[in-house]
Simulated assay, not measured.
Amino acid sequence: MIYTVYALYSSKFSKIYIGYTSDIKNRLDSHNIYSTKGHTSKFRPWILVYTEEYPSKAMAIKREKQLKSAAGRKFIWELISKLN
C-alpha cells in the first residue's frame, strides 16, 4: 500500500491543510464534497498543491509532522506563492 502526504490550499480563505491518506482521490472528495463537519468543510473549495508518496504509514506520518512544523508550513506557502 502507498501512503500519500498532501497539502491542500483554500484560496478563498487563504488556508492550508496538511494530511496523509492511502486513497488520495477519496480523501480529496471527502474534503471538498462529502464531509459535513470538521475543519476542512468550513474552508471549501480546496485544491491539491503538493503530494509525496511513501511505502509505509509510519514514514507518511513522520513526513506529515515535518510539514506541519513552522519550516514545513513555510515550504508549502512558498510553493503556493509560486502558483499565483
Rank of each mutant, 00 (worst) to 15 (best):
I24R: 02
A60H: 05
S10P: 07
A71I: 04
K57F: 14
M1N: 01
I80T: 04
T21F: 09
S22G: 04
G72A: 04
S56D: 00
R44F: 10
E52C: 12
L79M: 07
R63N: 09
I80M: 04
I47W: 08
P45I: 08
T51K: 14
S35Q: 12
L83C: 15
L8M: 14
F75H: 01
F13A: 06
I47K: 01
K82M: 15
P45F: 07
S14W: 11
R73V: 02
N84S: 11
K68M: 13
N32D: 03
T36Y: 09
A58N: 15
K65I: 02
M1R: 07
I76Q: 09
Y20Q: 03
Y6S: 06
K62H: 08
I16D: 07
N26F: 02
M59L: 15
N32A: 09
V5H: 01
I16Q: 12
A58P: 03
P55K: 13
S69Q: 02
S14M: 07
W46L: 05
H39T: 10
K37E: 10
N26Y: 02
I18T: 10
N26W: 08
K65Q: 13
G38F: 05
S14V: 11
P45L: 06
Y20W: 08
S14N: 01
S14T: 06
Y9K: 07
S35A: 15
E53P: 04
Q66D: 12
Q66G: 02
D23W: 00
F75A: 01
K57I: 05
R73A: 09
T36H: 13
